[in-house]
């Protein structure tokens, strides 16, 4: 009975601490989704693959979205002709490199500030490197799902910041034209090409009040979805704390390697949102090695069950596997480094 009380109190405590951050997270991500035009960003990104990956990783500062919101944004980036390095860097880093997550991690790990900085630092390194590796593939097309690849703009004019469809068709085009208004009597197009409108953020064309309504609706939807995942995650954390025998937890959690593997598996399965995952990790802080907590905090936002489903809407299975393998190996290496030399 005492165990049950402890479990319930733990469970509620995790929820009550995490819900405010979840609210801030979904509010930010909803507002930015409807008010920031990522097309403007693409034009100013550096050309160099490494710098591109780095800046892609840092875009998260302007888009504080957790891992559920960043895949649609990364998809739009890819489709609108952002270099591969930028998109992959963004995909992996955005859930961690943003102010809300930094604050939440700071609140949770006030006692161990190194966790906060190592989390951000390692995520930046891993995302940049993976983005760089992916940029070696000159054309990302074969990695993408067919539907995404088809709608992509490959010919991206850097000087003018203009994007053009990959294969301007000579065939009849749909749209509204003024006959004979352009040079040489060619038709002048007066509306946005259909393809471009389909891939652009559809909300950007709406009025301010419509955007606000949409943002509020999106907020409710995300809160419902992420709140449910948070509840399941908290329930798992509380159950492990109360029900698992202490010897087992300590045996697993104090091992240099076993603790990291355990936390990475947990991160992939629990799928808890990056805004609140630090509170989940916190409940393991007294029994698990610092490196394993970091592995959880770095790897979880990059890849987890929920995220894989989302990634498969953009990338083909093989590319998702590469992403997964690279992220997992590098997170493991970073965590092991911390356990051996810092923790």
């Amino acid at each position: 009975m005492v165990q049950l009380n402890t479990g319930f109190t733990l469970f509620l405590s995790l929820l009550v601490e995490a819900v405010p951050f979840l609210l801030i997270g979904v509010a930010f991500s909803s507002l930015l989704m409807f008010f920031v035009d990522e097309r403007a960003l693409i034009g100013v990104l550096p050309k160099n693959a490494f710098l591109g990956a780095l800046s892609g990783s840092l875009i998260g500062l302007a888009f504080p979205v957790c891992e559920c919101g960043n895949v649609p944004v990364a998809r739009r980036l890819l489709v609108q002709g952002a270099p591969t390095a930028v998109s992959i860097g963004f995909l992996l880093a955005a859930p961690v490199i943003n102010p809300v997550v930094f604050w939440a991690t700071w609140v949770a790990f006030r006692g161990q500030p190194e966790v906060v900085f190592l989390r951000v630092g390692f995520t930046l390194i891993i995302a940049t490197l993976v983005g760089w590796v992916f940029s070696r593939q000159p054309d990302i097309g074969p990695f993408l799902q067919d539907s995404v690849a088809r709608s992509r703009f490959r010919d991206f004019n850097r000087e003018s910041g203009e994007v053009k469809p990959s294969a301007p068709s000579a065939l009849l085009q749909g749209g509204t034209f003024i006959q004979g208004a352009g040079d040489m009597g060619a038709a002048l197009r007066i509306d946005t090409p259909m393809a471009q409108r389909l891939v652009a953020n559809p909300a950007l064309e709406k009025t301010f009040s419509q955007k606000l309504t949409l943002a509020a609706e999106n907020m409710v939807r995300e809160l419902r979805e992420l709140g449910a995942v948070l509840i399941l995650g908290s329930a798992i954390a509380a159950t492990v704390q109360v029900a698992a025998p202490r010897e087992l937890i300590l045996g697993l959690g104090q091992g240099m390697v076993s603790s990291i593997v355990a936390m990475m598996v947990l991160a992939a399965v629990v799928s808890i949102c990056s805004t609140v995952d630090s509170f989940f990790a916190l409940s393991f802080a007294s029994t698990f090695t610092t490196g394993s907590l970091l592995a959880f905090l770095i790897f979880g936002p990059m890849i987890d069950l929920k995220n894989i489903g989302l990634l498969l809407t953009v990338f083909k299975g093989r590319a998702v596997f590469y992403l997964f393998a690279l992220a997992a190996l590098m997170s493991f290496a970073c965590a092991l480094f911390v356990n051996l030399f810092i923790g």
């Binding site: 895949v71 649609p72 909300a203 999106n218 979805e225 995942v229 929920k306 989302l310 809407t313």
Partner: peptide, 10 residues
């Protein structure tokens, strides 16, 4: 319209 994929039914 934003390609929101959910893990659980709403």
């Amino acid at each position: 319209m934003l390609g929101h994929v959910t893990l659980m039914p709403p």
